[in-house]
Computed example of a mutant assay.
Amino acid sequence: MTVTVARHELSVGPDAERFAERLNERVARRIGRLQESANSIDFAFSTSVMALHARCVIDPRAAKVETWEATVNAMQLGSALFAVTGAGEGTIHCRIDRKTRTLQAIGPLSSADAGTWLTAFWLAVICREQQRMTELCEIPLERLRAPEGQYDEYIYQWVDALQTYWMRRPGLVEKLTAALQMSHPDVAQVAPRDLLQGVLYPPINLFYHFVLKDEAGFSPALEEALKLHQMYWTLTEERRTDIDGSIALGPLAIACLAYDGKLPIEVESEYLPKHLLQHSWLGEFPT
């Protein structure tokens, strides 16, 4: 039986459509400036992710092409961010917003870290961009390390597990188990407990069920992940107005992996936009 997890009411004001349009315009401007200088590509990426969340507020099923365009732009900018920061000289050719653009390599950027990598990887998974997933998984873990104290150590185990899975390297179960253990609230010290329990830990647990091909356990774990997501984003009035709560990006990406792997998904929710989950827009235009 399919379970429905209702999305909480997002108190974003009466003009959500216009807000999304303004964000799209801002993304387009920042993309347009990248060929002059790629130094602000992290801001372009973060704005594009915000624009995607805004689109999903007004189009929770991702039934409109504008939402797919916002998803693809965010995915392309995430990949481009790691491409231009992975080299200190020369140029990088990146397809962004329907055009192939030549960007100058800028070398290391503090924002090109493990947290940003996870977002970029989730977007590549959702867009079914296997080559971009591979390129992201070829990035050495040490390159993603942030200054000490910014992240708990589990995040590097988590990235390592995802890279190991996609590249079919040995040691996946051990790395994933370590990520699960190290992300326990009694072990992790940096992330706030509510953020850890509501947003950061659930994708790791969900991925564990996916890796095990646990047909009986995957949907309950997905339901739990969405309920914890909802709990986190409704804990305060300020969070209720935050468009970041409109979708559950990590659980959505892992549900996409499960969907493509023919694992039964018996959960429906606007936190998991239907047409992104079922890749209905795939092939609509080159990505």
Rank of each mutant, 00 (worst) to 15 (best):
V3T: 15
E9R: 09
L10T: 02
S11I: 05
V12H: 01
V12T: 08
A16P: 04
A20E: 10
L23R: 02
R30P: 03
R33G: 07
R33T: 14
R33P: 01
S37A: 15
D42V: 06
S48I: 00
V49C: 05
C56L: 14
V57T: 12
D59H: 05
W68I: 06
E69K: 12
T71D: 00
N73W: 11
A74C: 15
S79E: 12
A80C: 09
A83C: 07
T85F: 04
G90A: 04
G90R: 06
T91K: 15
D97C: 11
K99P: 09
Q104D: 06
A105E: 03
L109Y: 14
A112S: 15
A112K: 12
A112H: 08
T116V: 12
T116Q: 08
L118G: 03
L118S: 06
L118Y: 01
T119P: 01
A124G: 02
C127I: 01
Q130T: 12
L136W: 12
C137K: 03
E138V: 08
E138C: 11
P140M: 04
L141A: 12
R145N: 11
P147T: 13
E153I: 15
E153V: 13
Q157P: 03
A161R: 11
L162M: 13
Q163D: 05
Y165R: 05
W166S: 08
R168V: 13
G171H: 01
G171K: 03
V173C: 12
E174N: 05
T177H: 07
Q189C: 07
D194K: 09
L196T: 11
V199E: 06
Y201A: 14
N205D: 09
V211K: 04
D214Y: 00
D214P: 07
L222Y: 01
L222S: 08
A225R: 06
K227P: 09
Y232W: 15
T234R: 14
L235R: 12
T241P: 13
D244H: 11
I247F: 14
A248C: 08
A255R: 08
C256V: 13
Y259H: 11
G261L: 02
E268S: 10
L272R: 04
P273A: 03
L277P: 13
W281V: 07
W281C: 14
E284M: 08
F285T: 00
P286Q: 08
